[in-house]
Design a protein around this nucleic acid. Structure first.
Lengths: 232, 232
DNA sequence: TTATTAATTGTCAAAACGACAATTAATAAT
DNA sequence: ATTATTAATTGTCGTTTTGACAATTAATAA
């Protein structure tokens, strides 16, 4: 029987940066770690890759378990593999970022897993290299969102342009002219205007829109220019 | 002593898609696999991640060994981790793509490792999921090169705009107007015109340019628009 | 009825884009 | 020596996109 003799074997894990949007600010979902070392410290949600699943499978499983959600937007970021990143035993971790509608998140799971949403700019220190992972995820989210219509994934089915506008400003940490933004986002042809209005935020009210899913699917890989004066 | 009890351990490897440009066509460097299974079949250059190196380290080590080159442009692509992708034993592989100046490649290594350059569009079938990796690498190269000035990495220090032009057409598999291309690429401010001309290709000769390394470093993360009518 | 507020639509000059033409600098042919 | 040829380079110009900023609109509150 053939084998790869005497090559070292390692643990392989996944860690997920889960982004959500509460209508005002960008947030991430953190959990209190349930095993030693660093038990009860804040960390990303993660887990080991099982023997019959791919890393992508593992990330989806972890997300399902800890948020109750399936089929969420999930993107592989990069592998974290410094030899000493885990003090117990060498573990390589595949970093993912996920975009979820914060309102779909099942809040009772907060208790089960001691999970909690934190403002991206006001979060606790995390274990291991998880702080770096969050920084990388934020950068990658910004990069991707500047060119591709993915931020919709963090909004409810029906949303208004002002909501979207705030989300874009949050993600890019910049001010965007409301007038130009509204024209630019509608000109993508990705939005379908609904008859209903959201009147909670203003007197005039803002029209609800929904995604044109066909066009969204077709444009998921297209390059758009969604952020003005784009520089890194 | 703490340990992660009874979690499965796996082999972790790296595989590199090495791109080069011979002045006319995009090429990749393949090697004949030196171990069972699938010994003597064409494959990507790769190797296992050693106990005291990160995957990035491993990829650089493999590249150094098989091409003689150090400090080449190397970008992590994604992890390939289907449970059965390697028939012998579960192995996860981190895919990288590398851009090298084909003329710097030390050809004597061809013999040592049975390596060979192939046209990207006319290459042998590869082992395992390496065909998929090549397809992914090509897509990612195209994506990245449309927005960032990285193709210079495949050209010699001194190069002409027509050379660059052909390279862009090759990578994007499209025709680009020479006149617009030349203006666009010079308007980036990344090129320094040299006094010397390359007279091999034409009667008039084409001026050599070199990279403005300072501006290149500053713009490595910037968004440019280098490919006209960009659609995916 | 009017003031107020936020959403939406308008305006416009500057810049970028891209289709296409003309000129230039060399060599090869006559 | 002159001319034809070839590829590199620079020019032209209408169209589209961008982004700064103004005006209008639809509702509620005073």
């Amino acid at each position: 029987m053939i084998e790869y003799s005497r090559q070292p074997h390692y643990l392989v894990a996944v860690d997920c940066i889960v982004f959500g949007f509460d209508g005002e600010h960008l947030k991430i979902l953190l959990v209190k770690r349930g095993l030693e070392p660093e038990i009860n410290k804040w960390s990303l949600m993660g887990g080991f890759v099982g023997p019959s699943e791919s890393p992508d499978d593992a990330a989806n499983r972890v997300l399902k378990k800890m948020t109750g959600l399936e089929g969420v937007y999930l993107e592989q970021m990069q592998i974290y593999g410094e030899p000493l990143r885990d003090p117990i035993e060498r573990t390589l971790s595949v970093g993912y970022f996920a975009l979820i509608d914060i309102h779909k998140y099942e809040a009772q799971l907060n208790d089960d897993y001691e999970a909690e949403w934190f403002l991206i700019n006001d979060r606790p220190k995390l274990i291991f290299d998880h702080n770096q992972m969050v920084a990388d995820a934020r950068k990658k989210l910004r990069y991707k969102a500047a060119l591709h219509p993915i931020l919709f994934e963090m909004l409810p089915k029906k949303f208004t342009i002002p909501q979207l506008h705030i989300l874009f400003e949050e993600v890019n940490d910049t001010k965007i002219d409301t007038r130009n933004f509204s024209r630019k986002i509608t000109s993508t042809g990705l939005l379908i205007k609904l008859a209903e209005k959201d009147r909670t935020g203003s007197k005039k009210g803002a029209f609800y829109f929904k995604l044109d899913k066909k066009k969204y699917a077709a444009n998921a890989q297209a390059f758009l220019s969604l952020v003005p004066n784009l520089k890194v």
